[in-house]
Each structure stands twice: as C-alpha cells, then as structure tokens.
Design a protein around this nucleic acid. Sequence first.
DNA 1: TGTTACCATGATAACGATACCATGTCTCGT
DNA 2: ACGAGACATGGTATCGTTATCATGGTAACA
Lengths: 338, 338
Amino acid sequence: MADIRDVAKLAGVAPITVSRCINNSGYCSPQTRARVEAAVAELGFVPNRLASGLRSKRTNTLALVLTDITNPFFTTIARGVEDIASEAGYTVIFCNTDESVSKEKKYLQVLLEKRVDGILLVPASNGLDSVALIKKRDIPIVVLDRRVPDLQTDVVRCDSEEGAYELTRLLLSLGHREIAILNGPSGVSTSGDRLDGYRRALNEAGININAKWEYHGAFTQESGFEMAHKALAGVYKPTALFATNNFITFGALKALQEMELRVPEDIAVVGFDDLPASLVTYPFLTVAAQPAYEMGRRAIEILLDKLCGKASDQYQEVVLPAEIVIRQSSGRVRKLVQ
Amino acid sequence: MADIRDVAKLAGVAPITVSRCINNSGYCSPQTRARVEAAVAELGFVPNRLASGLRSKRTNTLALVLTDITNPFFTTIARGVEDIASEAGYTVIFCNTDESVSKEKKYLQVLLEKRVDGILLVPASNGLDSVALIKKRDIPIVVLDRRVPDLQTDVVRCDSEEGAYELTRLLLSLGHREIAILNGPSGVSTSGDRLDGYRRALNEAGININAKWEYHGAFTQESGFEMAHKALAGVYKPTALFATNNFITFGALKALQEMELRVPEDIAVVGFDDLPASLVTYPFLTVAAQPAYEMGRRAIEILLDKLCGKASDQYQEVVLPAEIVIRQSSGRVRKLVQ
DNA sequence: TGTTACCATGATAACGATACCATGTCTCGT
DNA sequence: ACGAGACATGGTATCGTTATCATGGTAACA
C-alpha cells in the first residue's frame, strides 16, 4: 500500500509537506495542496495512524469502559459520548466489564497498550485500583456514574441519594410503611447512595430501618427476580418495592406477575432509570430518571477539555439531578392499615 | 515511560527476547521468562501496540459499524460480537452511522487509517461502495443483518422475507384483509425483503397488493408514529399494522394510543424484533424475533476464521430464521366484516 | 558419529509517520 | 532600506516494536 513517501514523490514535494497537507497542520499553498490531493487520490493513499501515533504520541482514540452496553442507560450514555467525541475527531472503544474487577483490569491494560488518549470509566466495584493505575500513567480519566472514594479525579454522575430519597418519600406519602429496597452490589457507590437516600426518607418519617426490607444483589433482571421473590416470601410482606435499577425493576415485575400480584393494586413499584421512549409501549413505571445522554455528554466534554489543556487544574464533580417521573406503578394514596 | 529496551537491559537479554516473552511467540526458557517478567513489573512496562502494529501489520482491533447502538437489536448483536472477539484477544471499535452513507464513509476511512484487522458492517443503504472500498484494501469484512447486491462477500443475516411472510400469514389467518405495512427506508435490503414477504403472503391469499397500505419511512420511533397516523388518516382504515422494526412498532403504538385505539381490540399490531426479557414488563407484542446475539456471534466467528486463514475460499451467506412469537397484540380470530 | 530437529537467543534493519530545526521568500510598517 | 513576522517548504533523526536471518546448544535417532 502506498505510503507518504510515494505520495510525496508523485506530488514533487517532501513527505513532511504531505503530512502537513493531510493533517492541516502548518502552512501549505493552494497549489501544493492540490498536487498533494491529486497524488493521494491517484495512489489511494490512506495515512497510517499507527505510525503517526507512534511518532506524535496521540492516537485520537478514547475508551468508554462500562459494565454492560446492553443496558439502555449505558447505551444512551455511550451515544452521548460517541456523538460528541466523533464530532471532535475522536474514535471511541467500548468495553463491557460485567461488574467484574478482573475484566476491567484486563481491558484497562489493553487500552494502555493501545495508548488511548483518554478514558471514561464506570468503575466496577469501588474503582480504587483502576483509577490509580490510569492516573499513574498520566492518562486523562473521567469517572462516570459512580463515585470513587478518596481519589482525586473528575466525576460525572447523577444524584442517586436524592433520587432515592424522593422516590421513597413518594411511597411514604402514598401511605406505604413497609417498603423493600431491591438493591445492586454493595461495593458500588450507586447502590450505597440509593440505600442512603431510602434510609434518610424512612428516618425522616420516623420509621425504623429494618434490615429485613433491604436486599442486595446484582444489577440484573435475574437478581431482581430473586430479590422480589425473597422479599415476598415471608409472612410480613412489603406493600411497595423500590428497585434500584431498570433491570432489577423488570426482574421484580416478572416475579410479581408469577405471584399474581397486581401493580399497583396489590403492591406498588418504583425504580431507578427510565427507558427511552423508543422502547416503551405504555409508560407505566414510576421512576427516578437519570439524564443518561447528558451524563455522557458532560463526561466526554470534560475529557476533551483535559486533552486540549483547557481544563481547570481542579477536579470537578458534576452531579446531575434525577427526575422523578410519576406514573401508574406507584399507585394512588392508600388506606393506612394498622 | 519505559520501553522494551529498558526492560531488556534490566533483564540482561535482548529486546527481541522480551518481545517473545510478553507475546508468547517463539521460544523462551522459564528462567528468562521469570527475569523478564520481574523487569516488566519493576519498570511498570506497558508494551506500545502502535509500534508493534506498525511493524507486524496486525492491530488486534476489529470494528463493528452499525446504524444505531441505541437499538437493543444492535446492542445485542454488539454484545455477541464483543464477547467472542474479546475472548480471542481482539478489541472492538463501534461506530454509529445513523443510516447515513456519508457518516459510514467517514468512519470507514478512519478505520482504514487505524489499520483495523477486520470489519463487521451493517451497511447503510445498499452498501455497494462501502464494501467495495474495504475489499479493495484487502481487509476482511463480514456484512451483518443486510444483503449486499451483486457483491462477493460473507453475509450473516436473518430471513426477513420469510419472517414477514409468516407474520402476515398470521394476520391473514386471524381474518385481517386490510393490513398496512409500516416499513423502513426503501434502499435497505431488510425493508425490501420484509415488503416482499408481506406481499407474498397477500398474493397467496388472493388479496391484491394495494400501494395505499404500504408506507416507507425510517427505522425510528418518530417515523413509526407518523406512518401509523397516515395509515389511519383515511376513510378506509387498516384492521392490522405490520411494523418492520422495533422502533417503528413503538412509534405506531404511541400513535394508536393517541387515537384511542385499543390493541388488539380495535386494531392488531405485529412487528419485527423482540425486546430482551430484561426490558419488558408484560410481554404483549406479537413479533418476528431475530436471533441477534447469535447473528453477532456467527459474524464475528466468520471474521476470526478469515483472520487466521481458516476460512474457506468461498463466500458464505448465513441466513438464520426469525422466530414468530405470538402474544396478545395480534389478537384473536376476528369476525369477517364485509 | 553424523544428521535432523527442536530449543533459546541475538544483531540488524525496517515499519510509516512526524518533531525539530533550518532555510528562504514575501509583505509591511517605519 | 531594513528588520520583523507571516508564509512555505525541506532534511534528518526518531518514535518502539518485530521480521528476518543467523548462531549455537542439546536431544534423538539411525
């Protein structure tokens, strides 16, 4: 395949001039540009970005490491990231960690080897080691969706605590007192924050925290299914379920169907994460909707700023509010039993 | 940052030996391996894959070019691709073309510049130029989801014609005679095939093809919404809708809701593409479900075979069947009016 | 004992681009 | 008329690996 020297020879200029032309770096007269472009077209020249990256130490490639692209929440984030990044001339590599720290580590190693210019990370677990690893290499990083303890880094996330607080308050205001929370893995900050918000609302209402209403599992449909079954297995049953992510919500709903419990008549359900309009038949679920696209957009913008040195020297923490969307699944005010 | 020579020096070997060690290529005694690994760890060496790719002409990077990762159908394909590719040691770059030929062209140029080892392509429009462009460079390519006219290439897709035929037959068997098809862009093979299947079923049933029941738009919710409104605007209304992809289906359902038409009582609805269980509350839609994960898996497997020279010299066309899943939205047998 | 085959390592050059420094022309303001 | 600064181009070295060829040791086998 033709290289830059072939092009240079054919155009009657030096290779470096060709380089300047095709990258719009440095000066280049219109005549030269025309000759170079003609030569490029004639030879079908495609610049080798491995070589240029090796020399220039920039790859114009970023990475988005997340837990599961199958989740529309992350898909929407990914779209926000890709749209902006691609406009700015960057390519994005996506990696699914499935909440596995070892998978995350493996991916990060590959990304370092590929010399990506920057990384957006939704850390599996607490993310401590991973963020440290990347920072040691001086690669710009922005953490997405989750907090990282004790680590200086930029973060873009949603206010999970407040969202959970308001969802719980909504249930309380509707008369519920036995509210089970079906939560994600305990090591993850969003789980912790949502639990905190839930507890704060209960505390404020003067209701004792009861471990029997607090379930921990994974952010998956299967786990939601199981937790719902467990929550409703005992003699004392909750009157409402709070599922802390969309997959858990759908798993729980499936379990309720199996048990022939009607929502919201027999049991109320609220959850975190809304589905995009393009995937919903009849909007039914009361949710705390995270601004996913916006989160992706903000995160990539911070990263791009860092890449061109425009970022402030201080770390930012962008915390966007969740929007409480009230629909049918939370039900109407109910008679107080007891 | 430390390079391979620093490692070599510290381990007391030649750089090439370090290379062999970390890539498991060629021979390497246990002692040497141990010394090299120690040196790698001490220096925190991370091999530069730009340099190695430049020299070896392999990047261990593949690309999946699709129209919209936001669509769960493609997301599931993407997961299938990524799972297998990553097991085989490849990284995957995703690109969203939004059905735009120019976006596709831009992305392909970037991918060629990055010297990806292979490409999976869901072609926007007919894909002729794009596939030719890639083949000219001798980069292995597998086309996904759609047929490419007159072009020798491997293809993995679903049998759209047959799926559409069966969905339409189902509606016919339920007594419907006025069936509107809400279709995607006419340049795309899946649209064409689904239209063909629809027509074949009608023909077989002795029903005249009627242009007034055939709508073309985009594979989006908005378009589905519009087409449904148009289809139901006239005096003669269809008794059933066939939406040719999931987004169109949801757009149509939204339109029907606005018009206060009940599904299936007032109008039957069937569509292409099922949603993953993790996203569905109450399975309701009658659909032709494409085996998305399997499609991704098959496509990447063919690509990997080509990469290691295991592929046969003939082009394959893998056509997987769609599964007709009958739920409520298609309704029960109806009285024949007229 | 010689031939073959595998094991283990190294020297050198090359992959294809750009960083860096240098050179020369032209315009313009004073 | 002259220095300053923008414009336009080029020479050389270098980025960090691995392909290729080469060397020598050791085990196996007839």
